[in-house]
């Protein structure tokens, strides 16, 4: 696919300069603008999930308070540190490329790559732990863990509290609380009870205040959520958004590893130097956004 080059072999053009550009500077600036636009789309891609997070958290804050106790803050903190350090080495790589220091460039890129690997390894342990415990998104959350012996939360002496039981418990409690108070909705009607089933689930159907008040922050959970009578309704929702967001971020880290691997390959061949470092610069920008997104994810899921 290089016929354009063959046809227009302008002698003064460096090899990496496209035929439609006037000079290297113009091409570099255009590439950089393109990369920033791409990063904007990445921000909006994650933006959708951040908005979903905000909406759900606004509607069901108790789920987030509850669910985050099953995440390992230490592992999250290690991963945060790893990513910040790898961003540093990436930034150094760009500088070394600009300074034409080939060996330092290569070392920094390899360090960045190792950082990415480290992040994925820690992520692997976190995910493996969740899968083993059966703490999963959606309906799978309500299946007991496959290997009961290996689970550190599971207590064979406790019963499973399924959604129906939990719902009944909550309704009982809510009714007990409501006793003595005047009915909130007092519309004139001369019939029996409505045939429409009460919407006990869903955004309009349940009063979360009671659950929120009951749940005390800061006590490290040692009960399996499926056996926990204090579990809020729809506790799986937290893990939906947790897996969606960290999963999508994980995919971006994997893509980042491919990009950095390719940069290492080209740097080893000596393609980059002070006159041409666009790919290192753009790869760096991408890696920083991946890092930046994690810096938001860590407190949103692990800390608050």
């Amino acid at each position: 696919m290089s016929h354009s080059h063959e046809q227009h072999g302008h002698g003064d053009h460096p090899e990496h300069l496209g035929h439609h550009w006037d000079n290297v500077q113009q091409q570099f600036e255009a590439s950089k603008l393109g990369m920033w636009l791409f990063l904007a789309t990445e921000v909006l891609l994650f933006g959708g999930l951040f908005v979903a997070y905000a909406v759900w958290r606004g509607n069901n804050p108790e789920l987030y308070a509850y669910g985050s106790e099953y995440l390992d803050v230490t592992m999250g903190a290690i991963n945060t540190t790893i990513l910040i350090l790898s961003s540093l080495t990436m930034a150094m790589a760009v500088t070394y490329a600009q300074l034409n220091r080939q060996t330092a460039l290569l070392v920094c890129l390899i360090l960045t790559f190792l950082g990415a690997c480290g992040f994925m390894i820690v992520k692997y342990f976190e995910y493996a732990d969740k899968i083993q415990e059966g703490i999963l998104p959606g309906a799978a959350f309500y299946e007991p863990p496959a290997n009961l012996e290996a689970s550190k939360y599971w207590n064979p002496d406790l019963p499973i509290i399924d959604r129906e039981t939990l719902l009944a418990l909550r309704i009982q409690e809510a009714e007990r609380e409501r006793e003595g108070r005047p009915a909130q909705i007092d519309r004139p009607r001369f019939g029996e009870v409505s045939s429409v089933a009460p919407a006990a689930v869903g955004p309009a159907g349940f009063d979360p205040d009671a659950v929120r008040a009951r749940h005390v922050r800061g006590e490290k959970s040692n009960v399996h959520p499926l056996q926990d009578p204090n579990r809020p309704i729809n506790a799986h929702m937290f893990f939906n958004i947790y897996f969606m967001m960290t999963g999508l971020h994980g995919i971006h880290v994997l893509v980042g590893m491919i990009v950095i691997g390719w940069l290492i390959y080209r740097a080893a061949l000596g393609h980059f130097g002070s006159d041409y470092f666009t790919p290192v610069d753009l790869g760096g920008l991408y890696w920083h956004i991946v890092d930046l997104i994690w810096i938001f994810l860590f407190p949103l899921f692990y800390l608050i």
Binding site: G191, E192, S194, S195
Partner: peptide, 25 residues
């Protein structure tokens, strides 16, 4: 209006159920 006559409506594929106060369906 506060004195409205209340009818419960259930929609399901592909029909409506209207329940009047007093149980007429």
């Amino acid at each position: 209006p506060v004195d409205a006559y209340e009818i419960d409506v259930t929609a399901q594929k592909w029909g409506w159920t209207f329940e009047h106060p007093g149980g007429a369906i």
